[in-house]
Design a protein around this nucleic acid. Structure first.
Length: 583
RNA sequence: GCCGAGGUAGCUCAAUGGUUGAGCAACGGUUUUGUAAACCGUAGGUUGUGGGUUCAAAUCCCAUCCUCGGCUCCA
């Protein structure tokens, strides 16, 4: 009830915004202005460039419209009348929309001097909307088509109460604090260098440790599940990509070829053709299947310059890629295993907010796809089945499959609510044909099915998401530095070093802070570095071979014996626990 | 790629046409310290890069690179 109401209010807000803009900037043409999550926007075409100062002026004008409590008047008009009304005003975009409306009767809403094409409903008058704020402007193509004119979009937020509005603003500020780009700099994890190039990541030692830990883990998980680890080069003859078809249908996303000895080589945008070559390097029997080839494969893709985003969208990244070659009978169990793998990952890292999408073909246009209809049906049924069996809510996206096969995608929501794709399980009916993959079965030569899958998606993106998910407070097994050992005076240096060595020997990652600083300063430093456990070593501790553990919460545990400390920490690491053992 | 906003010390920011500055970090010294910042000092910059206007440019203009917010596209 309340929700429906706020939607209406947000939508009314966009009308008030448009009214204010048209009054302040004569000749501004209107695009569309819907309600969105948390607010609204309106698209405008104007010679004037809207600045942040303009937003303040527009907001003031909006407040005036609110104060004058103009009624929203709904009128039903014929299509012809509507075309005349908006045509006379020169609202070419509205005219285009009206022409496409199937109905003959069209509703328009008027408040004050402002009239807009609109399905409604609205509040009874403009005075009902109080708690809104214009936030930012952006460019947006008319109807999302980059060949059409680009308009200026003004975004705003709107809530029922002032408290909700302020809470939202505060929440956005909190989210900004856990932005992985900010934490990446603060915690010295990674950075980009102008001299190296956009979308190309440099990992500093702390970020490198995090990455190595994650990579070791995912390798081990792959091996547990019957994958074989392979390696492949970063470039290959352009010929390979012509054979695979990438040079044709994927060229927009590829770096230009490199010429060597009159031969063209291509930086790899994908790992598939390499794994296929490995498959083809031996004569395969049905007994070899399923064959699961996995690689942390670094790929390079040309991303348009405006789309890079920290670690979440880069030009060079490492996929935890694998290709499964199997018989038709093995599809169900392989898909099930992949999906369980994905769920295991999400559970391990404590991800709860994600959405699953099933993309299938458009049954009416089989000519747009490669592969046999029976393979499509079987694969799609297997994908759908596994989602149903596991009771996973999902969005079915008919017609969204790639031309080469159906897929399941899992997207995670970042700190400010944007979705990012991580896991994907895709069938590929194209490459086995192109590379003439076969295996020998009782019935003779058969074509294997191929499943392409990435679980983390890419190491870069996954770490970006992890940083935001934990706000930099990594669980012990992933923590760059697991315990920071602080000495009170120089007297304790030998014991501190001994403790650090014992921890290292147990496979833990300690770091020493032996500076002649006050304890408070060292504590503060360790806190800012978001170290899970801070170990304070004074005369007492050195004498008794103990440590005082300061937790992230600020709580202290005194007199913990070195052996107990190491045993518990090792246990915590081994269990991949999301909760600290000492708390 | 497109629209818009930006780029000043390692980090966060100040300086609106008139000698680039502060805090933190770094370095040197003093302090040997019990739970979120000890004190004094030193060094650090071709203001992203290239060009132009001007007696004079971080500041104005042009180009270019990079970053950010979106659009479009995607792991």
């Amino acid at each position: 009830m309340e929700n429906a109401n706020i939607e209406v209010k947000r939508h009314s807000c966009s009308h008030i915004l448009a009214a204010a803009v048209q009054e302040l900037f004569k000749g501004t043409k209107l695009g569309i202005g819907p309600a969105i999550e948390n607010g609204f926007y309106y698209d405008f075409l104007s010679d004037h460039k809207f600045t942040p100062e303009d937003l303040k002026t527009i907001e003031k004008k909006m407040q005036q419209i609110v104060a004058s409590a103009q009624p929203f008047v709904c009128q039903k008009v014929s299509k012809a009348e509507a075309l005349k009304i908006f045509g006379d005003k020169g609202e070419e975009f509205k005219v285009e929309l009206i022409k496409e409306l199937p109905e003959d009767e069209i509703t328009i809403y008027t408040n004050g001097n402002f009239t807009d094409l609109c399905r409604g409903p609205h509040m009874e008058h403009t005075g009902k909307i109080k708690h809104f704020k214009l936030t930012h402007t952006a460019g947006a193509y008319w109807r999302g088509d980059e060949k059409r004119p680009q308009m200026q979009r003004i975004y705003g937020i709107a809530f029922e109460t002032k408290e909700e509005l302020n809470d939202y603003i505060k929440q956005q500020e909190e989210a900004a604090k856990r932005d992985h780009r900010k934490l990446g700099t603060d915690l010295k994890l990674f950075f980009m260098d102008e001299d190296i190039g956009p979308g190309l990541v440099l990992w500093q030692p702390k970020g490198g440790m995090l990455r190595k830990t994650l990579e070791d883990w995912i390798r081990a998980e792959n091996l547990k599940r019957g994958y074989d680890m392979v390696f492949s080069p970063h470039i290959a003859r352009l010929h390979l990509w012509q054979k695979s078809g990438h040079a044709n249908f994927y060229s927009e996303n590829m770096f230009s070829p490199i010429e060597v000895d009159d031969q063209k080589y291509q930086l790899k945008p994908m790992n598939c053709p390499f794994h296929i070559s490995i498959y083809n390097s031996e004569l395969r029997s049905y007994r070899d299947l399923p064959l699961r080839l996995a690689e942390l494969g670094t790929v390079y893709r040309y991303e348009r310059s405006g789309v890079m985003h920290g670690l979440l969208r880069v030009r060079g990244f490492t996929q935890d890629d694998a290709h499964i070659f199997c018989t038709p009978e093995q599809i169900e169990s392989e898909v099930q295993a992949c999906f369980e793998f994905a769920l295991h990952i999400f559970k391990t890292f404590g991800f709860e907010k994600y959405k699953v999408e099933l993309s299938t073909w458009d049954e009416t246009k089989p000519e747009n796809y490669t592969g046999k209809a029976e393979d499509w049906h079987r694969a799609q049924a297997a994908l759908e089945d596994v989602l149903k069996k596991n009771n996973i809510p999902y969005t079915a996206q008919a017609g969204e499959a790639a031309f080469y096969g159906p897929k399941i995608d899992i997207k995670l929501i970042d700190a400010i609510g944007r979705p990012w794709q991580l896991s994907t399980i895709q069938f590929d009916f194209n490459l086995p044909e192109r590379f003439d993959l076969t295996y020998i079965a009782k019935e003779g030569r058969q074509r294997p099915l191929m499943v392409h899958r990435a679980m983390l998606g890419s190491i870069e993106r996954f770490i970006g998401i992890l940083i935001e998910h934990y706000a930099g407070l990594f669980p012990l097994w992933l923590a760059l530095v697991q315990a920071k050992i602080l000495t009170l005076t120089d007297e304790q240096i030998p014991f501190a070093k001994e403790l650090a060595q014992k921890m290292r020997e147990a496979g833990l990652r300690p770091e020493l802070d032996l500076r002649p600083e006050k304890l408070g300063a060292k504590i503060r430093q360790a806190h800012l570095e978001k170290v899970p456990y801070t170990l304070v070593i004074g005369a007492k501790e050195a004498q008794n071979k103990t440590a005082t553990i300061r937790l992230r919460s600020g709580k202290n545990l005194e007199g913990v014996s070195v052996d107990d400390l190491i045993a518990k920490l090792s246990e915590e690491v081994k269990s991949f626990s999301l909760k600290p053992y000492f708390n």
